[in-house]
Simulated assay, not measured.
Amino acid sequence: MPKETVLEFQNVSFSYNETANVKDLNVKIKEGDFVAVIGSNGAGKSTFSKLCNGLLKPTSGDVLVTGLNTKKEKVSNLAERIGFLFQNPDRQICCQTVAEEIAFSLKNNGIPEDEIKLRVENTIKEFGFKADVEPFNMSRGQRQRLCLACLIALNPKILILDEPTTGLDYKECMEMMNRIKELNKSGTTVIMVCHDMEIVLDFARQVIVMNRGEILASGRTREILCDNELLSKARLLQPQIAATCTLLGSDYKDVFTVDEMIARIKELKGKK
Protein backbone atom coordinates (compact mmCIF):
# COMPACT_ATOMS: atom_id res chain seq x y z
CA MET A 1 0.00 0.00 0.00
CA PRO A 2 1.53 3.37 -1.05
CA LYS A 3 2.50 5.72 1.77
CA GLU A 4 0.63 9.00 2.15
CA THR A 5 2.44 12.24 1.31
CA VAL A 6 2.32 14.23 4.56
CA LEU A 7 4.45 17.23 3.54
CA GLU A 8 4.86 18.73 0.08
CA PHE A 9 6.67 21.80 -1.29
CA GLN A 10 5.37 22.94 -4.68
CA ASN A 11 7.74 25.41 -6.42
CA VAL A 12 8.34 27.17 -3.09
CA SER A 13 10.42 30.33 -2.83
CA PHE A 14 10.86 32.66 0.13
CA SER A 15 12.57 36.05 0.25
CA TYR A 16 13.76 38.39 2.99
CA ASN A 17 13.76 42.03 1.83
CA GLU A 18 13.49 41.05 -1.85
CA THR A 19 16.59 38.86 -1.58
CA ALA A 20 15.88 35.19 -2.35
CA ASN A 21 16.61 32.98 0.63
CA VAL A 22 15.26 29.75 -0.84
CA LYS A 23 13.95 29.23 -4.36
CA ASP A 24 12.11 26.66 -6.44
CA LEU A 25 11.91 24.01 -3.74
CA ASN A 26 10.02 20.87 -4.73
CA VAL A 27 9.84 18.18 -2.06
CA LYS A 28 7.57 15.27 -1.21
CA ILE A 29 7.92 13.59 2.18
CA LYS A 30 6.01 10.40 2.88
CA GLU A 31 4.43 9.17 6.10
CA GLY A 32 7.03 7.50 8.34
CA ASP A 33 10.09 8.94 6.56
CA PHE A 34 13.17 10.04 8.53
CA VAL A 35 14.73 12.82 6.48
CA ALA A 36 17.84 14.88 7.25
CA VAL A 37 18.26 18.32 5.67
CA ILE A 38 21.96 19.12 5.34
CA GLY A 39 24.02 22.03 4.05
CA SER A 40 26.56 24.60 5.20
CA ASN A 41 25.71 27.83 7.03
CA GLY A 42 23.42 29.98 4.90
CA ALA A 43 22.23 27.07 2.77
CA GLY A 44 18.59 27.74 3.69
CA LYS A 45 18.02 24.81 6.08
CA SER A 46 16.38 26.76 8.91
CA THR A 47 14.22 28.68 6.44
CA PHE A 48 13.15 25.33 4.96
CA SER A 49 12.21 24.02 8.41
CA LYS A 50 10.17 27.13 9.30
CA LEU A 51 8.32 26.94 5.99
CA CYS A 52 7.29 23.39 6.90
CA ASN A 53 4.93 24.41 9.70
CA GLY A 54 3.84 27.87 8.60
CA LEU A 55 6.18 29.93 10.80
CA LEU A 56 7.19 31.39 7.44
CA LYS A 57 4.78 31.68 4.52
CA PRO A 58 6.09 31.14 0.96
CA THR A 59 6.66 34.23 -1.17
CA SER A 60 5.59 32.01 -4.06
CA GLY A 61 4.50 28.40 -4.36
CA ASP A 62 2.69 26.30 -1.76
CA VAL A 63 3.53 24.16 1.26
CA LEU A 64 0.99 21.45 2.05
CA VAL A 65 0.91 19.78 5.49
CA THR A 66 -1.30 16.67 5.33
CA GLY A 67 -3.10 18.46 2.50
CA LEU A 68 -3.52 21.81 4.32
CA ASN A 69 -1.99 24.88 2.68
CA THR A 70 0.18 26.78 5.19
CA LYS A 71 -0.76 30.08 3.50
CA LYS A 72 -4.38 29.55 4.48
CA GLU A 73 -3.95 27.98 7.93
CA LYS A 74 -2.95 29.48 11.26
CA VAL A 75 0.22 28.07 12.81
CA SER A 76 -1.88 27.01 15.80
CA ASN A 77 -4.12 24.92 13.53
CA LEU A 78 -1.09 23.19 12.03
CA ALA A 79 0.54 22.53 15.43
CA GLU A 80 -1.59 19.46 16.14
CA ARG A 81 -0.28 17.92 12.90
CA ILE A 82 3.32 19.13 12.84
CA GLY A 83 5.53 19.76 15.89
CA PHE A 84 8.64 21.96 15.82
CA LEU A 85 11.67 21.54 18.09
CA PHE A 86 13.83 24.67 18.08
CA GLN A 87 17.62 24.52 18.23
CA ASN A 88 17.55 26.52 21.47
CA PRO A 89 15.07 25.02 24.00
CA ASP A 90 14.88 28.34 25.86
CA ARG A 91 12.90 29.77 22.93
CA GLN A 92 10.08 27.29 23.67
CA ILE A 93 9.90 27.16 27.47
CA CYS A 94 7.52 29.65 29.10
CA CYS A 95 6.07 28.07 32.25
CA GLN A 96 7.17 27.81 35.88
CA THR A 97 7.10 24.02 36.29
CA VAL A 98 7.63 20.93 34.14
CA ALA A 99 3.98 19.88 34.53
CA GLU A 100 2.71 23.33 33.50
CA GLU A 101 5.05 23.35 30.49
CA ILE A 102 3.79 20.00 29.21
CA ALA A 103 0.16 21.07 29.78
CA PHE A 104 0.63 24.46 28.07
CA SER A 105 0.65 23.30 24.44
CA LEU A 106 -2.10 20.78 25.12
CA LYS A 107 -4.37 23.55 26.43
CA ASN A 108 -3.54 25.73 23.42
CA ASN A 109 -4.64 22.91 21.14
CA GLY A 110 -8.01 22.49 22.82
CA ILE A 111 -7.35 19.13 24.49
CA PRO A 112 -9.99 18.37 27.19
CA GLU A 113 -8.85 18.87 30.82
CA ASP A 114 -9.11 15.21 31.83
CA GLU A 115 -7.08 14.18 28.77
CA ILE A 116 -4.48 16.88 29.54
CA LYS A 117 -4.06 15.54 33.08
CA LEU A 118 -3.58 11.99 31.79
CA ARG A 119 -1.09 13.00 29.09
CA VAL A 120 0.95 15.15 31.49
CA GLU A 121 1.17 12.31 34.02
CA ASN A 122 2.14 9.77 31.36
CA THR A 123 4.75 12.08 29.80
CA ILE A 124 6.37 12.90 33.16
CA LYS A 125 6.54 9.19 33.98
CA GLU A 126 7.93 8.26 30.56
CA PHE A 127 10.74 10.84 30.69
CA GLY A 128 11.45 10.54 34.40
CA PHE A 129 10.82 14.22 35.15
CA LYS A 130 9.75 15.74 38.46
CA ALA A 131 6.49 17.60 37.95
CA ASP A 132 7.24 20.64 40.16
CA VAL A 133 10.81 21.36 38.96
CA GLU A 134 11.37 24.78 37.37
CA PRO A 135 12.58 24.21 33.77
CA PHE A 136 15.34 26.84 33.94
CA ASN A 137 16.88 25.00 36.88
CA MET A 138 17.38 22.00 34.59
CA SER A 139 20.49 21.38 32.45
CA ARG A 140 20.52 22.34 28.77
CA GLY A 141 20.10 18.68 27.81
CA GLN A 142 17.16 18.22 30.18
CA ARG A 143 15.47 21.37 28.86
CA GLN A 144 15.85 20.02 25.32
CA ARG A 145 14.29 16.71 26.46
CA LEU A 146 11.45 18.66 28.08
CA CYS A 147 10.70 20.47 24.81
CA LEU A 148 10.69 17.14 22.99
CA ALA A 149 8.40 15.68 25.67
CA CYS A 150 5.95 18.56 25.18
CA LEU A 151 5.78 17.78 21.46
CA ILE A 152 5.37 14.05 22.05
CA ALA A 153 2.46 14.75 24.41
CA LEU A 154 0.71 16.44 21.47
CA ASN A 155 1.31 13.34 19.32
CA PRO A 156 1.86 15.19 16.02
CA LYS A 157 2.00 13.29 12.74
CA ILE A 158 5.18 15.12 11.70
CA LEU A 159 8.12 16.29 13.82
CA ILE A 160 10.51 19.04 12.65
CA LEU A 161 13.87 19.16 14.45
CA ASP A 162 16.18 22.15 14.01
CA GLU A 163 19.68 20.99 15.07
CA PRO A 164 18.30 18.88 17.96
CA THR A 165 21.71 17.86 19.35
CA THR A 166 23.38 21.30 19.53
CA GLY A 167 24.90 21.89 22.97
CA LEU A 168 24.36 18.31 24.15
CA ASP A 169 27.08 15.95 25.35
CA TYR A 170 27.36 12.48 23.79
CA LYS A 171 25.10 10.77 26.35
CA GLU A 172 22.41 13.44 26.07
CA CYS A 173 22.70 13.35 22.29
CA MET A 174 22.17 9.59 22.11
CA GLU A 175 19.26 9.73 24.55
CA MET A 176 17.61 12.40 22.43
CA MET A 177 18.19 10.69 19.09
CA ASN A 178 17.20 7.22 20.28
CA ARG A 179 13.91 8.61 21.60
CA ILE A 180 13.31 10.27 18.23
CA LYS A 181 14.16 6.99 16.50
CA GLU A 182 11.53 5.22 18.61
CA LEU A 183 8.95 7.83 17.61
CA ASN A 184 9.81 7.32 13.95
CA LYS A 185 9.46 3.54 14.30
CA SER A 186 5.99 4.07 15.72
CA GLY A 187 4.99 6.04 12.61
CA THR A 188 5.95 9.69 13.25
CA THR A 189 7.49 11.38 10.22
CA VAL A 190 10.77 13.08 11.19
CA ILE A 191 12.47 15.95 9.34
CA MET A 192 15.78 16.91 10.94
CA VAL A 193 18.00 19.86 10.10
CA CYS A 194 21.47 18.68 11.11
CA HIS A 195 25.12 19.66 10.64
CA ASP A 196 26.54 16.49 12.25
CA MET A 197 27.17 13.96 9.47
CA GLU A 198 27.69 11.14 11.99
CA ILE A 199 24.18 11.70 13.38
CA VAL A 200 22.78 11.90 9.85
CA LEU A 201 24.44 8.60 8.94
CA ASP A 202 23.29 6.81 12.09
CA PHE A 203 19.64 7.92 12.10
CA ALA A 204 18.33 9.39 8.83
CA ARG A 205 17.15 7.17 5.98
CA GLN A 206 16.79 9.97 3.42
CA VAL A 207 18.81 13.16 2.91
CA ILE A 208 18.07 16.49 1.26
CA VAL A 209 21.20 18.49 0.35
CA MET A 210 20.82 22.29 0.23
CA ASN A 211 23.21 24.98 -0.97
CA ARG A 212 22.62 28.71 -1.40
CA GLY A 213 18.85 28.33 -1.03
CA GLU A 214 18.44 25.50 -3.52
CA ILE A 215 18.13 21.73 -3.31
CA LEU A 216 21.18 20.14 -4.92
CA ALA A 217 20.10 16.54 -4.46
CA SER A 218 17.98 14.16 -2.43
CA GLY A 219 18.16 10.42 -1.94
CA ARG A 220 19.08 7.57 0.37
CA THR A 221 21.49 8.53 3.12
CA ARG A 222 24.40 6.30 2.15
CA GLU A 223 24.12 7.15 -1.53
CA ILE A 224 24.30 10.87 -0.73
CA LEU A 225 27.15 10.54 1.78
CA CYS A 226 29.14 8.45 -0.71
CA ASP A 227 29.07 11.27 -3.24
CA ASN A 228 32.11 13.31 -2.24
CA GLU A 229 31.78 15.57 -5.29
CA LEU A 230 28.21 16.49 -4.29
CA LEU A 231 29.21 17.09 -0.66
CA SER A 232 32.13 19.27 -1.74
CA LYS A 233 29.77 21.35 -3.88
CA ALA A 234 27.56 21.80 -0.81
CA ARG A 235 30.65 22.62 1.32
CA LEU A 236 30.15 19.55 3.51
CA LEU A 237 32.45 16.80 4.76
CA GLN A 238 31.83 13.07 4.73
CA PRO A 239 31.52 11.20 8.07
CA GLN A 240 34.99 10.41 9.44
CA ILE A 241 35.23 6.71 8.52
CA ALA A 242 33.81 7.32 5.04
CA ALA A 243 36.28 10.17 4.49
CA THR A 244 39.17 7.92 5.52
CA CYS A 245 37.96 5.17 3.19
CA THR A 246 37.68 7.63 0.31
CA LEU A 247 41.40 8.35 0.74
CA LEU A 248 42.12 4.59 0.72
CA GLY A 249 40.64 4.20 -2.74
CA SER A 250 37.90 2.32 -4.59
CA ASP A 251 38.41 -0.92 -2.62
CA TYR A 252 36.91 0.85 0.40
CA LYS A 253 33.97 2.49 -1.35
CA ASP A 254 30.67 2.43 0.60
CA VAL A 255 32.40 1.73 3.95
CA PHE A 256 30.97 3.89 6.75
CA THR A 257 31.73 2.18 10.07
CA VAL A 258 34.68 0.62 11.87
CA ASP A 259 33.04 -2.81 11.68
CA GLU A 260 32.53 -2.42 7.94
CA MET A 261 36.15 -1.37 7.52
CA ILE A 262 37.41 -4.43 9.43
CA ALA A 263 35.19 -6.69 7.34
CA ARG A 264 36.47 -5.11 4.11
CA ILE A 265 40.11 -5.49 5.17
CA LYS A 266 39.50 -9.18 5.93
CA GLU A 267 37.72 -9.60 2.60
CA LEU A 268 40.59 -8.01 0.65
CA LYS A 269 43.17 -9.98 2.61
CA GLY A 270 41.37 -13.22 1.77
CA LYS A 271 41.58 -12.46 -1.95
CA LYS A 272 45.37 -12.18 -1.88
Rank of each mutant, 00 (worst) to 15 (best):
L231D: 11
L247E: 15
K57V: 15
N211T: 08
T246R: 07
L68R: 14
C150Q: 02
D169T: 02
C52G: 11
L85A: 14
K233P: 07
I82M: 09
G167T: 03
V193R: 04
L236R: 02
L7M: 08
Q92F: 07
M261P: 01
Q142T: 12
E198R: 04
I29C: 10
L236I: 05
E18R: 14
V190H: 07
T66V: 11
K72F: 03
C194V: 01
K71V: 00
M261R: 10
A20R: 10
I124M: 03
C150K: 00
K181H: 11
I262S: 01
L7H: 11
S232V: 00
L183D: 01
V190I: 15
L56W: 01
N109R: 13
P2G: 10
T188H: 11
T244E: 09
E214I: 01
V258T: 13
G141V: 06
E172H: 02
I262R: 01
V63H: 02
Q142I: 03
S139D: 04
C226I: 00
I191N: 11
G270D: 07
K269I: 02
T244V: 13
E8P: 00
V190G: 02
A263H: 10
N137F: 12
N108E: 08
G32Y: 12
L247F: 07
P239S: 14
D114K: 15
K50L: 13
V75P: 06
K45L: 05
T188N: 08
V209S: 08
F104V: 07
N41D: 08
Y16V: 11
N228H: 12
E100N: 11
E163S: 05
N17I: 07
E163N: 04
G141L: 09
T246F: 12
A103L: 05
S15R: 11
Q10L: 12
E101D: 15
S218Q: 14
L148Y: 06
I191D: 09
N11A: 14
N88K: 14
E214F: 00
E113H: 05
E260Q: 15
T70V: 15
E31Q: 15
I29G: 10
M192Y: 01
R235L: 13
Q238G: 05
S46M: 08
A99D: 10
G270V: 07
N109V: 02
Q240I: 13
C94T: 12
A131V: 01
L64K: 14
V12G: 08
P156Q: 13
T66S: 13
V133H: 10
L161P: 06
G219Y: 07
E214A: 13
I102R: 12
L237A: 09
E163L: 05
N11T: 08
N122S: 14
T123E: 03
S232K: 14
R179H: 14
Q10D: 11
G187R: 10
L51V: 07
E229F: 04
N178S: 05
G187M: 08
E223V: 07
S46F: 04
K266M: 03
K130N: 09
S139M: 05
N211E: 14
K185Y: 04
K130P: 00
D227F: 09
E31F: 05
N69W: 06
M192C: 06
I180D: 04
N88Q: 13
I215W: 05
D227L: 10
T5M: 00
M177E: 04
P156N: 12
I224A: 11
I102W: 05
G187T: 04
V200R: 03
I224D: 11
